[in-house]
Amino acid sequence: MSNQNVKSLDVSAKTVDEAIEQGLAQLQLRRDQVDIEVIKEGKRGVFGIGAEDAVVRLTPRSRPSAEQAEQKAPPQPPADNQPAEAPPATTPVEEVARRHLGALLRYMGIKAEIKVKSAPELVEGNEEAPLVLDITGRDLGILIGRQSQTLRALQYILRLMVSKEMGSWQPVIVDVESYRIRRHQSLRRLAERMAERAVANKRRVVLEAMPAYERRIIHLALKDHPAVYTKSVGSDENRKVTIIPK
């Protein structure tokens, strides 16, 4: 994998127009913010025989807009044989993550947009706000899956891809239609409610099985609670948070 194409993006699709649309969606730029070069026109073929995908190269123009310029690293000056700056160090994680996630979704046959944001809602205390890639579009429930299994797989694979290219571990977060943020908030409310119930009934409350990071949210939500403490019981897929009155 190379970092050569940080300044431009090659996209292939059935038609030139489709490829341009997909590329613009990935870059989150408008048509007038990029230079478009058609590398292959693509062929329709006969009954799919001899069909060839169209390939276009999109190169963001140096001054896209004030808003975009804020989010993206400034364009690099032309390389003047200056060995001092190694390309991987200057490649922004955001661009790499967006490119890989865009490729994964495309090969999964999913049409969607990727929005990059930081999500202070998702962190506890003074942890650094992570980079979140939020996938938006229609009918994306399949991207979440049972117990958010698919979403977690997508995030795990993307982290491997991005970290490999960047040369260091990159804990980027993948979200679908802000599912994680909504889930985070509802888990915190659930924790409060169940803690009240545990105290009122003087009995422990066992929550449904959850993946590790969701259990963590419950544990953290109640860690300073005056009247209950929490513990996870069970193993693997069946591990459940238990809220116990003190």
Binding site: L104, Y107, M108, I110, Q149, T150, R152, A153, Y156, I157
Partner: peptide, 11 residues
Amino acid sequence: ANAMRTLLRTS
């Protein structure tokens, strides 16, 4: 391998 299988299955 399991994460890859999950994404392939979904697709």
